[in-house]
Design a protein around this nucleic acid. Structure first.
Lengths: 214, 214
DNA sequence: CGGAGTTTTGATCGAGCTCAACGTGGGTGG
DNA sequence: CCACCCACGTTGAGCTCGATCAAAACTCCG
């Protein structure tokens, strides 16, 4: 993958942690617990403190489209509009801080930086959606590699990446079948580019992976 | 297509026209003229007054990804960051108003509504990118139908839609080949669901089209 | 431990790509 | 203004990548 395509990681959460923390308490969500449903009121958006989130849309014929995964330190649920466009749920037990949208956007809020904060998060979300689009135009092999590279970058550029989501989640995110995802991962492992563990993948040959994404 | 999926059209430009008009003059761009290049400084974003715009990214191997089309009344070039993520050019002769980003986001600007305006546009852009993602997960036939429905909705819900872009543009937007786009359009025409004219398509059987997008 | 959910692997099928040839129309120069 | 010409669009035949169908192996909770 073209490195300039990948997403620079995010907004500095830590520096805002304190002020955000004052607004509302965080709570734990169990595995497969819904944070918000499709079409629900979008009065809140969320900061994931720990765990893993999937945001998805269910089509009328039952097909499922995974719009995004969120990892600790990232925001989710800010898709604009007054209704959530997708549903979100915890992939594993997750600690989540709910933030009232109005506290940032209400015209009574004198602090312009709060609004700017929302804008930055939305813009980052847009960038991610565009990167996702780019993935979906490519071959199965490239999609899988691009997905791993993105996950690596967002997980502090680690080569040892955590993938608690199922193959079905990955397949629905990449627009492939679980069999194809499994085969592509298998192929990458057979060429020693990666090493597959249970819910974890180790990137062994970054140069090869980067080359494949070209 | 699931109607709730489609994008409600935009921000009320007219009501802001006057104040925007004061900021900067608009100018005409010729067919195929570049408005801004990939990686160029994103000091400005743009309002399309008339014409048609394509925004695209060229991959290292020469493949091209069309990120979006813009029609009159829509904004473009607000992908976040200080650099443009894609390039934009006029598909036909187009009248474009350039808006300095800083006039909206600078902390010296006392008016919070300006910032909110930028946020709304960015959020709408995000919504569009998400809809585009949804298209890319579907079959060739569904992508073409979804594209036509989106264009119809954005063009005042008209059944007579203007498509000045080439088949190559549409193909690169939908992740298909020009042959497949041509065949899918042909198939829709043969079932009398649409009527193809040169750079124009008339939607004849909305019920059928909506059904196909299911 | 038991059993359902998940992942891998294999065999076959088909939607969409590729390659090729032909048709068409609008822009440009004479 | 017209005719040429080249970019654009359509149509056909065969092939390939990823989907589908099937079944075995694993693993993780309960």
């Amino acid at each position: 993958m073209d490195t300039q395509v990948r997403i620079q990681s995010a907004i500095d959460v830590e520096s805002n942690e304190k002020s955000l923390g004052q607004m509302s308490g965080s709570r734990w969500f169990l595995r497969k617990e819904e944070v918000y449903g499709e079409g629900a009121s979008a009065a809140y958006f969320y900061l994931l403190k720990s765990g893993f989130i999937r945001s998805f849309k269910t089509l009328s014929d039952g097909r499922r489209h995974v719009q995004s995964f969120s990892i600790p330190g990232e925001f989710f649920g800010l898709e604009s509009g007054d209704r959530h466009f997708v549903a979100s749920e915890a992939i594993i037990r997750s600690k989540i801080l709910a933030l009232p949208r109005s506290a940032f956007t209400a015209s009574s809020v004198p602090d312009q930086s709060a609004l700017k904060y929302i804008l930055d998060i939305t813009a980052l979300e847009l960038r991610r959606a565009q990167y996702h689009n780019l993935l979906l135009l490519r071959s199965a092999q490239e999609r899988v590699v691009g997905f791993l590279l993105d996950m690596s970058e967002r997980q502090q550029n680690s080569f040892d990446i955590s993938l608690p989501m199922t193959r079905t989640d990955i397949a629905d995110y990449l627009g492939l079948t679980i069999e194809t995802v499994s085969r592509m991962l298998g192929k990458l492992e057979s060429m020693s580019a990666i090493e597959i563990q249970r819910r974890r993948v180790i990137l062994r040959k970054m140069a090869v992976l980067l080359e494949m994404f070209a």
